[in-house]
């Protein structure tokens, strides 16, 4: 098998704009899938609506292109019915953290053994560049001409509220690290989330001052720093992995006569 067998190359060129970061994620995902033997009989892809959501159409798998924001309930149900399958969600920041935010909150606490790859371009790409839930505060967008006023969702903090979950922060510039994170996340026996900063050159990058996608990649290279390896929490623009333990104790219901805190 080869990486290109994971892709429906006959449908190329993709609909993504030249310089878009989504293809860089798809390439690394396909590489990992080839490496660890994921195929159309053991893996299902679930995507949401947005430019990112198109990825499923280009991959040689059964793929569910869900409604906007609804990847997680669909993916969790698939995993429940077919625990033997690898279920991989690929979705945008708006899909995952805004319209799908309530599902994210609850998927995290239910801890299904699924993997979420979030293409975090910090904007609503498909709909033309409106502010999204991860847009940095103060950003000028087509829906925030005077700069966004809210601070972005803290995805790492949110995911790691579950002591058994896996969170990785990476960027499309850091290809090797992204690949390792995707692989580790798929292997992780519980909820895993790979938060991938990437560029939407067309509907965000140029407006905020980047002449081309390359400048955006160079910005990721310069700005993002590795977090100390044992970090339990990532600072702004830090790359790294914060993983709990699949065996971590979680509070359990009180029982009459018990102390209510035992994990047994």
């Amino acid at each position: 098998m080869a990486v290109k067998d994971k892709l429906k190359e006959e449908l190329f060129p993709t609909i993504w704009c030249p310089g878009c970061g989504i293809g860089l994620i798809m390439t690394q995902l396909a590489t990992v899938m080839d490496e660890i033997g994921l195929d159309e009989r053991n893996t299902v892809i679930v995507t949401g609506i947005g430019c990112t959501g198109r990825m499923g159409a280009y991959m040689r798998f059964d793929s569910v292109y869900t409604l906007h924001g609804r990847t997680l309930p669909v993916a969790e149900a698939i995993k429940t019915v077919r625990p033997e399958l690898n279920v991989i969600v690929v979705s945008g920041d708006g899909d995952t953290a805004s319209i799908g935010g309530n599902h994210l909150l609850h998927s995290i606490r239910r801890n299904p053994n699924i993997t979420v790859l979030c293409n975090n371009n910090e904007i609503y790409g498909l709909t033309g560049g409106q502010a999204g839930p991860t847009t940095p505060k103060g950003t000028n967008t087509v829906s925030s001409p005077a700069g966004t006023v809210a601070s972005p969702v803290n995805l790492q903090g949110l995911v790691n509220t579950n002591p058994q979950a896996y969170y990785a922060k990476t960027t499309v510039y850091h290809q090797g690290q992204m690949r390792r994170a995707i692989k580790e996340a798929i292997d992780w026996p519980g909820f895993s989330f790979v938060d991938i900063t990437s560029q939407c050159i067309e509907n965000n990058g140029r407006r905020i001052g980047f002449p081309s996608a390359n400048e955006m990649l160079m910005y990721f290279k310069k700005e993002y720093r590795q977090a100390p390896s044992a970090a339990r929490h990532l600072e702004h623009h830090q790359l790294g992995i914060v993983k709990g333990s699949p065996e971590a104790a979680v509070p359990v219901a009180p029982t009459a006569g018990g102390d209510g805190h035992s994990a047994e």
């Binding site: 679930v46 569910v64 309930p73 669909v74 149900a77 019915v81 077919r82 399958l85």
Partner: peptide, 19 residues
């Protein structure tokens, strides 16, 4: 599944059916 809301319930039964 007691889901977080009806939107999740509806989408979950769709995923389950496809599965």
């Amino acid at each position: 599944l007691q889901a977080e809301d009806e939107i999740a319930s509806a989408n979950a039964i769709i995923g389950a059916s496809l599965a």
